[in-house]
Computed example of a mutant assay.
Amino acid sequence: MDNIQNKGVDFTKLQGATLIATFFSLWLAVYFEHDIENLLAYILILSFGMLHGANDIKLLQVEAKKKSKPYDFLRILAYYIFFVLSVAGLFYLLPSIALGLFILFSAYHFGEQHWISKISGNPLFLIFFYTAYGLVILFLLFAAHNTEVSDIIFDIIGIYINNGYYQIILGISFFVFVVLYLTKYKQSNTNIFLELFYLLVFFIIFNTASLLWAFAIFFILWHAIPSLGDQITYLYGDLSRKHFIKYVRSSLIYWLASVSTLVILFFFIDGSSDGFIPFLFSFLAAITFPHVLVISGLNKN
């Protein structure tokens, strides 16, 4: 398949460096105050985190060119903006449904990024498998910081979630993940014990670092940076400093538009630092939905 990850970086070669960077980031948490951790997390999420999803339109353009399909930039841009605004509207009108969909989409996206080059199966199997793995990651984090997560969820949807629900969903997701893996382990080119070790690493991180710093460690080191490598290689043929600069230049206007919109909305709509985290995650959700669909679509080609 000529999908985005098969033409991207072999992440297995970088896992040692990622583990070192992960535990270095965890070590920093011991020496930094909570506010400094949060500041660093915001910087990473708003830089690398948002950057890795800022070039979706360029990816669609390159894909259309490779397939000799017509490409209308303004039409695609209009659809993209409409989709983002629709998701934002869904959070305003039906926040519970929007939050549930965001969690499922994010879980699928995390699972797809990690497993697409490691296991094969029919589309329905992969949907459930990727989502189950992603839910394990997310609910490991939620269960480790259940009080803070429940407060954020309450701020978004007005419903307080008991910690027991996080543990139940975590248990079910882990069970589904293991069972589905065992049905396809012969088609897998990875070691289940190594994957369980990574989950143990995530468990340690999530239960040691603060909520925002723990999320930033996973999101940046284990998802955004590998995804950036995949996208750069897909767009330009290989991963190099020159091509990274080209990627940043091509996505800069979209990244600046996203960050500027976030800042404007925060100051003129939210207006308080207490609600920044739920506001930030609601905003990230609005731009995550189209990104997940774009990457998933490219992976299926």
Rank of each mutant, 00 (worst) to 15 (best):
L59R: 08
I127A: 10
L293D: 06
F289W: 13
F206L: 04
Y31T: 05
F32D: 07
H291E: 07
D274I: 12
F218A: 03
A285S: 15
N162Y: 11
I159S: 06
I156A: 00
K13P: 04
I20W: 11
G111W: 02
V136Q: 10
T183C: 02
Y236R: 07
I157R: 02
L101I: 11
A209Q: 02
G171R: 04
D274K: 13
V248P: 01
F11C: 14
N146K: 13
F244K: 01
P290A: 03
V62E: 15
Y80S: 12
I103T: 10
R241M: 14
I172R: 06
T261E: 09
D2G: 12
L180I: 01
A17N: 12
I245A: 13
G134C: 08
H34P: 03
F215G: 04
F11M: 15
N299F: 11
F110Y: 13
S210W: 04
I269V: 15
D35Y: 13
T22K: 01
A98N: 08
F281E: 00
F193K: 08
S227L: 12
F283T: 00
T147Q: 15
H114T: 10
L239V: 12
Y166W: 06
L135K: 00
K65S: 11
Y79Q: 07
L199C: 09
L138T: 05
F154Q: 14
F174Y: 14
F281D: 04
I295F: 08
S251G: 13
L74H: 10
V62C: 11
Y71W: 15
L85K: 01
H243K: 07
I277D: 10
I159M: 13
L262S: 07
N6H: 14
L228N: 04
V259N: 07
G237F: 06
L211G: 05
D155C: 00
P123I: 07
I287T: 01
E33K: 14
F105G: 00
I43K: 05
L28G: 07
P290N: 04
G53S: 09
I168T: 08
I168A: 12
I157S: 01
I253T: 15
H114W: 13
L93K: 08
E112W: 00
K66C: 09
I169P: 02
A41T: 06
I153F: 05
N189K: 13
A285G: 15
L180Q: 07
Y198C: 04
G8V: 00
